[in-house]
């Protein structure tokens, strides 16, 4: 009987001690984290294309924070899904193809002599990457364009192309030139 009491007492004492230590640690070493939505938004590619079904990345970030699936962003692709999975502590899953497929990076290019200056693309662009005014030629600021594709549809004369971005970072992987014979 006596031993039982000792054991019980020890257990209770341990519980109290560890609880105190843990509580102290959680207060003392608290990590000030960004709000979740901010963290999610930081991982999203900010293409603002709306393919996820939300009008921009921030709204999608809010939706994810509220429990939406993490696999709806085609521009981010598998890499973003993986990061989101890590952040949210859920399993990564393949991209939901209902929202589109991952593609190479592109930017919009306006064939300027065909542009009629209708300003429709300007209104469509989520990041104000198109310059121009009514009835004069428009052009895309390549550095600002996120490649979201939203300006292509509204163009009444179809003069906007999405051209693959010329990737300057060579990744040590492909043959740039064919091999030639010697002798």
């Amino acid at each position: 009987m006596y031993t039982l009491l000792i054991a019980l007492g020890a257990l209770v004492a341990l519980t109290i001690i560890f609880g105190a230590v843990l509580g102290f640690a959680s207060v003392k070493f608290k990590v000030e984290a960004d709000p979740l939505v901010e963290q999610i938004d930081n991982l999203l590619p900010q293409t603002q294309c709306g393919q996820c079904g939300y009008p921009g990345c921030k709204p999608y970030a809010e939706a994810i924070a509220n429990g939406d699936d993490i696999n709806k962003c085609p521009p981010g692709g598998e890499a973003t899904i993986k990061q989101l999975a890590d952040l949210m502590g859920v399993d990564a899953k393949p991209l939901d193809s209902a929202h589109g497929e991952e593609d190479v990076k592109k930017v919009a290019f306006i064939r300027e002599d065909e542009c009629i200056g209708c300003t429709k693309c300007i209104q469509a662009c989520p990041v104000d990457a198109i310059m121009g005014a009514s009835k004069v030629m428009h052009t895309v600021i390549i550095d600002e364009c996120t490649g979201c594709d939203l300006c292509v549809e509204p163009c009444p004369v179809d003069c906007i192309d999405m051209v693959p971005l010329n990737d300057t970072n060579w990744k040590w992987d492909t043959l740039a030139i064919p091999v030639k014979n010697v002798n």
């Binding site: 990345c57 989520p126 990041v127 104000d128 600002e144 996120t146 970072n169 990744k171 040590w172």
Partner: peptide, 26 residues
């Protein structure tokens, strides 16, 4: 390859931050 990828990721991050800023401004 990894070094280039890291560099690329950093550039992308800068770009996406800019896009975010512009999007929010808009």
């Amino acid at each position: 390859t990894s070094k280039v990828e890291i560099k690329q990721a950093k550039e992308d991050k800068i770009k996406s931050d800019k896009a975010k800023e512009r999007f929010e401004a808009r």
